[in-house]
Design a protein around this nucleic acid. Structure first.
Length: 963
RNA sequence: GCCCCCGUAGCCCAACGGCAGAGGCAGGCGACUUAAAAUCGCUCAAGUGCGGGUUCGAAACCCGUCGGGGGCACCA
């Protein structure tokens, strides 16, 4: 028979946990009141007036069919601990979780099985909800939205129409409604594209002028076409190797008509406002890198075409100071001027044979080169490495500062997609140009004095004194690089040959996909093919049922294929009669769908007011939860202001560019249009580390189930040996997942230990931002802690309370006070691992007492609640409190108990500890110095040496410098 | 090639520039048990990757170097 029926086992933990989860749900414990909107509870909100609110957010999960593994909940537990702690500090805390329900896996599954993706997704959501509920997360379950619900994507579509109906006013530095653009054209405040008065433009011309300014626009442009997925992709979804981030299929550049978002208009604000948010530097750096703002100059090189026309080749350079060293030019193969620069006839007499590409004439050489370049994928270009290729066009341009005639080449190391698609070749200052010049026998002029010992076979791109840079009007010689840049830009601007400018790596965002399982566009085309956004009253545009979910996919390397969206196969949905204000007319619906990012661009706003069917979020509600603060975020530079936003956002670093950039963009548009009052979505973002696990391969390199591997410790510190079914296996470390056969499910943890133990273990493994290895056998440490905590309150045999109503002794009071102080600060700073360590320390102290005083027990129970809420609730209840401790105030430490009466003072000689003395905590420096010098050990050690200096850090340290 | 992060007991991790150890795992010893598991108690264990420097004093700050992880990469 069981002698300890009331021991805190996994089984007992499970019963307690499920009971409390039911009670929290029934009582709506985590429902956060809103100040306005359909759920307005202003009186409830007013009760939080003293301590304010806190908005905590997790990254929007995709409900995967594979279920969760133990790595997934790390961030969710982190936010939950933080949220629960702050409820105890008296804040109105909003924390909830919804689902990013549109996505590729459900659609691919649907294609294979014919199962509707909604059904699959709903089933997956049920599983995930169960797994997360069992974890005891304190979510406001009323706010759990899903992007696939028409009541949600109605507003995704509405936001799209707002973006479509907006333009970016450069002068005002913000987005404005299209109607104001039309008004500006009408009043003549804004010149039309060709300068004619607005009224003289035809209807089509007026429409084109407006459409060219829209923040969402459709355009025929080279896009990333992925035949293997049957869809086009955004730049951000294509890897450096030119493959799809999802599925790793080849991606080709094809010119197709697609929807784009003019995110480039926000490049500066997206870059600048990174200074205003509290994010990891790493992530800020990645976004800055992606935006790729570079300061420089645009310079025009005059060229006379073979046909006799005067043209200019515009180049962008970050190093205008090196203009005097420009000895050639290179255009991208796709550059529009190439055609007109190709010299007719044979090569000129004496043309360097290396320049000709072994062709008989410039036109043959250039067309062969261009053809070859057009056939290359990014992968090919990559694999060619740094070997510079190119051919001469037969034309010469004029260097605007030297007046020299310099040859113009076509070369594929110049990319059409960056800058102007043309570069000035400065072999002395740019390694790529140097390599090109060496290969083609072009002159190399240094314009910055290289330091001594600089290798002769390299360009010099560093700082130094400008040389070889003067003409009749200007001399840069002797200037630093920065001075020279400034001087030459001024000269270029004065002479009309160029101007200072900024370029960006960021491109407009490709926003359409040829998929079924996504939001339909709220766009229809009239009979002339013009796009119209649908009015609010016609939203949502519901996703129709289709006979076949598959996008037409192709052989992954079929370059000639073209996308065909599934929705185009439902003619009765595509062709509609609508009245858009000018009577019923025939329209054709847009058949592309939105990318997965659309729903996740604004979900945090919907969390705030999910039941609102009048607006996507009530402005007062948004202002309450996300308003800008008076004070700036931590570490913000001088002069910036707080942008508002979510108080804490925890998620993986894998979305550093994609989701976090897109969401910032949409947020800024909504701010510009006056719908919200915060300028940034995520004031503080914290990037959690990834939990990984060991995986094992057998002699053939096949993965074997990690949980079945046995470890034999090596003798005398040798490496341990690992075996699986008797055969030796090799250990490696990697991502948790099916393919490495090292996945551990949270369900197993609930069954073996309970959710609280699992939570404590995950939080205590190490700092939240750091990756670390999962180790199932170490989980028991967390369980032992909770068992001891339980035993400090409850008798394992009888189930009776063991706490006593005697006051705490002095030592216990001090230990409790220290813990309160430390644990509170650790929770606040997201240092959950050290918070748990301090709780364990205090608990171990209490364990050693003959009986635990009630006050000590209650204090530690309350402090433990954020990490282990179920056991804390249960003990709190056993201690006689009928209500949940969710809103119980976090204990406050008596400052008097934090300072010791006496402390151990360390006495060092030359920085080495030589003696310790007990002294009063308030001892003066002089007294302490005297006491230290009087120490017998010190006197003996100094042995008459003179004391040169004494450093006193009362009351803990004295350092004597002798000699 | 460039940029960022991390190197502390066998392992995961602590330590305002001031006594290297808070906590956990594993190991060892002991208690309980017929026994084992679980549990409890005790215990062992590193001088902080390496080399310089700054300082009265460095795991911490600076420079260099090695190792691990991540990001970017013909971006003009």
């Amino acid at each position: 028979m069981n002698e300890t029926p009331h021991r805190y086992t996994a089984e007992l933990a499970g019963r307690i946990e499920e009971a409390w989860q039911d009670r929290w749900e029934a009582e709506g414990t985590f429902h956060a009141p809103n100040p306005a909107g359909p759920w307005a509870e202003p009186e409830a909100v007013a009760t939080f007036e003293e301590h304010g609110k806190l908005l905590v957010l997790d990254m929007f999960p995709y409900p995967s069919g594979a279920g969760l593994h133990v790595g997934h909940p790390l961030g969710y537990i982190g936010t939950d601990v933080f949220a629960r702690y702050h409820r105890m500090t008296g804040k109105n805390v909003l924390h909830c979780l919804g689902y990013d329900a549109f996505g590729l896996p459900a659609e691919q599954y649907a294609v294979q099985t014919g199962q509707h993706p909604r059904k699959t997704t709903e089933e997956n959501m049920v599983t995930m909800r169960r797994q997360l509920r069992r974890l005891g997360l304190g979510h406001d379950d009323r706010r759990s939205i899903a992007t696939m619900d028409p009541s949600y994507y109605r507003w995704t579509q509405w936001i799209f129409t707002q973006i479509f109906e907006s333009w970016y006013d450069e002068r005002a530095g913000r987005a404005r409604p299209i109607s104001e653009l039309v008004a500006a054209f009408e009043r003549g405040e804004r010149p039309t594209p060709d300068g004619r008065p607005w009224t003289e433009l035809s209807a089509d011309e007026q429409r084109a002028a407006v459409d060219d300014e829209r923040l969402a626009y459709s355009s025929e442009a080279p896009v990333n076409w992925c035949p293997g997925l049957g869809t086009v992709l955004a730049n951000e979804e294509v890897t450096a190797e030119g493959r799809s981030e999802r599925g790793n299929y080849p991606v080709f550049r094809r010119s197709l008509s697609q929807w784009m978002m003019r995110i480039t208009k926000y490049a500066d604000r997206l870059a600048d406002d990174l200074d205003r948010v509290d994010w990891p530097e790493k992530v800020k750096a990645m976004q800055r890198n992606w935006i790729g703002r570079s300061q420089g100059a645009q310079v025009a090189f005059a060229v006379t075409t073979p046909a006799g026309e005067q043209k200019a080749i515009e180049v962008f350079t970050t190093r205008p100071d090196t203009l005097f060293g420009t000895t050639f030019m290179v255009l991208a193969p796709e550059h529009p001027l190439v055609e007109s620069l190709v010299a007719p006839g044979e090569w000129a007499e004496g043309t360097n044979p290396v320049w000709t590409g072994a062709e008989a004439s410039p036109s043959a050489a250039v067309s062969a080169y261009r053809l070859a370049a057009s056939r290359k994928t990014d992968v090919d270009r990559q694999s060619e490495g740094k070997d510079k290729t190119g051919v001469f066009t037969g034309s010469y341009a004029t260097n605007p500062v030297t007046g020299e005639q310099i040859p113009v080449f076509v070369g594929d190391y110049v990319l059409m997609g960056y800058g102007t698609g043309a570069v000035m070749g400065v072999p002395g200052g740019d390694q790529r140009d140097f390599e090109f010049a060496t290969k083609f026998g072009l002159p190399i002029v240094h314009t910055v004095q290289p330091p001594e010992g600089h290798p002769a076979d390299q360009a010099y791109a560093g700082a130094g004194v400008t040389i070889n840079s003067s003409n009749a009007q200007i001399s840069l010689d002797g200037m630093s690089v920065d001075e020279a840049k400034e001087a030459i830009i001024a000269w270029l601007e004065a002479s009309g040959a160029g101007h200072g400018t900024v370029t960006y790596r960021l491109r407009d965002w490709l926003f359409s996909r040829q998929r079924y399982w996504g939001e339909p566009f709220p766009i229809v085309y009239d009979e002339d093919g013009h796009a119209h956004s649908l009015p609010d009253s016609m939203l949502p545009v519901e996703l129709p049922e289709v006979p076949d979910y598959s996008p037409k996919t192709f052989e992954p390397d079929d370059v000639t294929s073209a996308p065909e969206p599934p929705l185009s196969r439902v003619p009765e949905w595509v062709n509609v009669e609508l009245d858009l204000g000018d009577g019923p007319k025939r329209y054709r619906r847009e058949t592309n769908t939105m990318p997965n990012w659309a729903g996740s661009c604004w979900y945090y706003l919907r969390y705030l007011d999910p039941a609102n069917d009048r607006v996507f979020v009530d402005p007062e509600v948004e202002a309450y939860w996300m308003a800008r603060h008076e004070s700036t975020v931590e570490g913000a530079p001088e002069g910036v202001t707080d942008p508002g936003g979510v108080d804490l956002y925890i998620g993986g670093v894998e979305h550093a560019v994609l989701h976090l950039l897109y969401a910032r963009f949409w947020h800024k548009v909504l701010f510009d249009l006056g719908y919200i009052g915060s300028e940034e979505p995520f004031r503080k973002y914290f990037s959690q580390g990834m939990i990984q696990a060991f995986a094992y391969t057998d002699s053939r390199g096949q993965y074997v189930p990690a949980e079945e591997v046995e470890e034999t410790p090596g003798a005398d510190g040798a490496e341990p040996a690992f075996t699986w079914r008797g055969q030796p296996v090799r250990r490696e470390y990697g991502k948790i997942g099916k393919s490495l056969k090292n996945a551990v499910s949270p369900d197993d943890m609930y069954a073996s230990f309970g959710a609280d133990t699992f939570r404590v273990y995950e939080m205590s493994m190490g700092p939240l931002e750091q990756g670390r290895p999962w180790e199932t056998r170490a989980v028991v440490g967390a369980q032992r802690f909770l068992q001891r905590l339980w035993r400090n309150v409850v008798d394992e045999t009888t189930g009776e309370l063991t706490v006593v109503d005697t006051p705490m002794d002095e030592a216990t009071r001090r230990a409790v006070a220290r813990a309160i102080d430390g644990v509170g600060r650790d929770y606040h700073a997201l240092h959950f691992n050290t918070a748990v360590a301090k709780l364990i320390e205090l608990n171990n102290t209490l364990t050693k007492l003959p009986a635990v005083p009630r006050e000590a027990a209650e204090t530690i129970v309350v402090m433990t609640a954020p990490v282990a809420p179920h056991i804390a609730e249960e003990l709190w209840s056993l201690l006689g409190h009928p209500d949940s401790l969710t809103y119980e105030p976090f204990p406050k430490a008596d400052p008097a108990l934090l300072v010791e009466d006496t402390v151990t003072c360390v006495i060092q000689v030359q920085g080495k500890v030589r003696d310790r003395i007990e002294v009063a905590a308030d001892m003066s420096d002089a007294d302490l110095e005297a006491a230290a010098l009087a120490s017998e050990k010190i006197v003996a050690l100094l042995d008459g040496q003179s004391v040169r200096k004494v450093i006193v850090r009362a009351p803990k340290l004295v350092n004597i410098v002798a000699g």
